[in-house]
Design a protein around this nucleic acid. Structure first.
Length: 111
DNA sequence: AAAAAGATAGACG
DNA sequence: CGTCTATCTTTTT
């Protein structure tokens, strides 16, 4: 937190997030691949430092297995609860396990 | 400059 | 089901 600006990597992540349609969710792996990186952790780092909270749909990014993961830097349980609420309002389908239905709400980047 | 952490994913036992 | 390793970027010492 030294510069007001952000890295090019984060900017690319936020750009991809804007491509995710409402009611859908993308996975870290797919996002990382769309950015040209094979490490979903790098994407998570960019989202964690997300300077635009609700402006960027960072809550539309979940794990590969449908688990929510985290939100900003909150506790795991709190992050899941908040994300589930937001996604549920957007029309994302949730399974009884508390996971997202990637089979219907899973989004993937073209190309 | 070097080391540690971080919202993952995949492989192994 | 639980544990370890691989991979990339950002942040801190």
């Amino acid at each position: 937190m030294s510069d007001d600006k952000i890295s090019v990597f984060a900017a690319g992540v936020y750009r991809k997030l804007g491509e995710i349609p409402r009611g859908k969710v993308a996975t870290y792996g797919v996002l990382a691949r769309a950015l040209g990186c094979g490490s979903p952790r790098a994407v998570g780092q960019a989202l964690r430092a997300n300077p635009h909270a609700p402006q960027v749909p960072c809550h539309r990014v979940v794990r590969i297995d449908g688990s929510l993961g985290g939100y900003q830097g909150e506790e795991r349980g709190a992050a899941i609860q908040r994300k589930q609420q937001l996604l549920r309002e957007e029309g994302v389908i949730f399974l009884k396990d508390g996971r997202v239905d990637l089979a219907s709400s899973g989004f993937e980047f073209p190309g």
